[in-house]
Design a protein around this nucleic acid. Structure first.
Length: 532
RNA sequence: GCCCUUGUAGCUCAAUGGAUAGAGCAACACCCUUCUAAGGUGGAGGUUGCACGUUCGACUCGUGCCAAGGGCACCA
């Protein structure tokens, strides 16, 4: 597929002496093996009729022997038919490695970063799985990736946690009924923590509680979710490592800081924010923005070329100010990318409610994964564009929404694996060494199942390249499903092993399918079963 | 009121400005008991929230409405 693109690009360059704009080169069964809208895209630049351009391109590339047929349809679409040999040769040399490794960048991806005031909930799931998958596809594309969880282990919410714990102790220690307060965190975990810790004041109890939540609730679950963080960055540690006063002074000399109404403001408006933001309150306390500033300073020092931050939609208002802070520190606009995941809501009867740890209206992620399994959970959350608004029906979701195609994909994977294993047993060369076959595909005629499967496999690498740029992770499950479908169709009609003989063409297809699904499952963090 | 996000089949979602808007689930009819049946084939299901506009061409871009979610603190 890359090859075909090169040929077309080459022809266009020779014809028009201009770099082709973004054009599509897709496999759509109804329009030949590959089709492109290139002539239309060029026509707006060259100011000539698409049909004429298409004819010129057709004449130029028709001589290339791997096009069996080039057709013009619908006043300018170019539809190509590739020969079976071409397709199989392309397939044989396909290794699924990212092609361009030249610009290796140091990228940090920060995700989840839920406050250590309670266990992770359903609301963190999207962010968690998406972040993990982004890290994996970026690594595939050759980037130097570091994953990080930012722990807000200081500030008001920690005190609130302390108060909540103390309040819960009223019941157990002093046999007084605990106070009801909307502000307090509720849940079994609060009582559990109350039994385990003591402290001399709210602050200390809050901090100890946060430590326990992080160590005994959050980290073990993350491990269970098969997510790895290279670093857990404590907010408190940042304040110990850097002198906030000094850092702010540096910025003051650059005129990003101003004193107004007795407080210290960061002039984020200069960078396009709606208003300026307080950095140090009238009472002398630093706001959370000061921590964010330190965190960015830290990341600048650590030399990241790019920072990707995943936030929930309730933080969408922060985007501008984070970018503003970043720019004041010398980050360019495109070096900080903030992705927003819409919040998950819970359906209760007719109503749909926002989850809240304080209202005790939550589904814990641990519970969900325990019930439906990690694979199904991952698939469910990865499948959707994070911008979609998700209403989660606790009852139905467990039964219906999560009876998802992940099993179909795994099944296809197992089938392919089983065939490959059989080939090994019957003394046929090891499946992973594709080169060994040296298959001669001369005048190979492919039937529609074989062709479809081959072309879909070939389309994978360009698609992954694209996703590693756009970070549209939700395309991964769709790709996997689509590929598996093509394989199932193929499997239904074709045989790889027939008695004692092996069909080398079909074996190659099976092998390459197996490798592509293997790669996709890895990227999605979905397990690769040997049996089902 | 202002800002961000979303509105596509009964449900969950796709569709770099391209051709007849596609998948899964659910439901219907048929086939298949294999190289693992968690399968295959076929039909049904749509005014892409509404209205204008931009152009060869709009689910996609622009403007205005309607509806939903989120945000508009010297809280994090």
């Amino acid at each position: 597929m890359d090859l075909v693109k090169k040929v077309i690009d080459g022809a266009v360059l020779r014809l028009y002496k201009l770099r082709s704009q973004k054009y599509s080169l897709d496999y759509k069964e109804q329009f030949g093996d590959l089709s492109t809208n290139l002539a239309f895209v060029l026509s707006s630049q060259i100011k000539d009729a698409p049909q004429k351009i298409a004819i010129a391109i057709k004449q130029k590339i028709e001589k290339e022997k791997f096009f069996e047929k080039v057709e013009i349809a619908n006043a300018g679409f170019l539809n190509f038919t590739l020969s079976g040999d071409t397709i199989m040769k392309m397939l044989e040399s396909e290794n699924f490695n990212h092609s361009k490794k030249s610009d290796r960048k140091k990228i940090q991806i920060e995700f989840i970063s839920a406050n250590p005031t309670g266990p992770l909930t359903l609301g963190n799931a999207r962010n968690a799985f998406t972040g993990d998958a982004i890290a994996k596809i970026l690594r595939w594309s050759g980037q130097d990736v570091q994953t990080e969880y930012y722990v807000n282990d200081m500030g008001n919410q920690i005190e609130t946690l302390g108060e909540s714990v103390i309040n819960s102790k009223l019941k157990t220690q002093m046999s007084k009924p605990p106070l009801k307060n909307q502000k307090f965190y509720v849940g079994e975990y609060i009582e559990e923590i109350g039994k385990r810790i003591n402290g001399k004041n709210v602050q200390q109890i809050g901090e100890r509680g946060a430590k326990i939540i992080l160590q005994d609730y959050i980290k073990p679950l993350i491990k269970k979710l098969k997510i790895h963080f290279d670093r857990w960055q404590s907010e408190k540690a940042l304040h110990q490592r850097y002198d906030i006063e000094q850092e702010v002074e540096k910025l003051r000399s650059q005129k990003f800081i101003q004193e107004k109404e007795g407080a210290l403001w960061f002039l984020t408006k200069k960078f396009g924010d709606d208003k300026d933001r307080v950095l140090k309150k009238k009472n002398g306390q630093w706001t959370y923005l000061a921590s964010d500033l330190l965190y960015l300073i830290d990341r600048k020092k650590r030399g990241f070329d790019k920072i990707i931050i995943l936030l929930g939609a309730d933080h969408s208002g922060y985007i501008k100010r984070i970018l503003a802070l970043g720019q004041s520190l010398g980050f360019k606009k495109d070096q900080i990318k903030i992705l927003i995941c819409q919040l998950a809501r819970i359906k209760k009867g007719e109503k749909s409610l926002r989850m809240s740890k304080r209202a005790g209206n939550v589904i814990y992620l641990d519970e969900l994964v325990g019930k439906v399994g990690l694979d199904a959970s991952r698939y469910f959350f990865l499948e959707k564009n994070p911008n979609t608004h998700l209403d989660f029906d606790g009852q139905k979701a467990l039964k219906r929404d999560l009876t998802n195609p992940v099993y179909y994909i795994q099944y296809g994977y197992v089938r392919a694996q089983s065939i490959l294993r059989k080939c090994q047993i019957s003394n046929i060369p090891a499946p992973k060494q594709a080169g060994k076959y040296q298959t001669n595909f001369k005048s190979q005629i492919l039937n529609s199942q074989e062709k479809r499967l081959a072309l879909k496999i070939l389309a994978l690498r360009p698609a992954l390249s694209d996703i590693s740029q756009t970070l549209e992770i939700y395309r991964l499950p769709h790709l996997a499903l689509d590929l598996t479908r093509a394989f199932s169709n193929f499997y239904e009609k074709e045989r790889v092993i027939d008695g004692e003989t092996v069909n080398p063409l079909n074996l190659l297809l099976t092998q390459k399918f197996y490798t592509s699904i293997d790669l996709l499952l890895d990227m999605m963090g979905i397990s690769k079963p040997e049996k089902m």
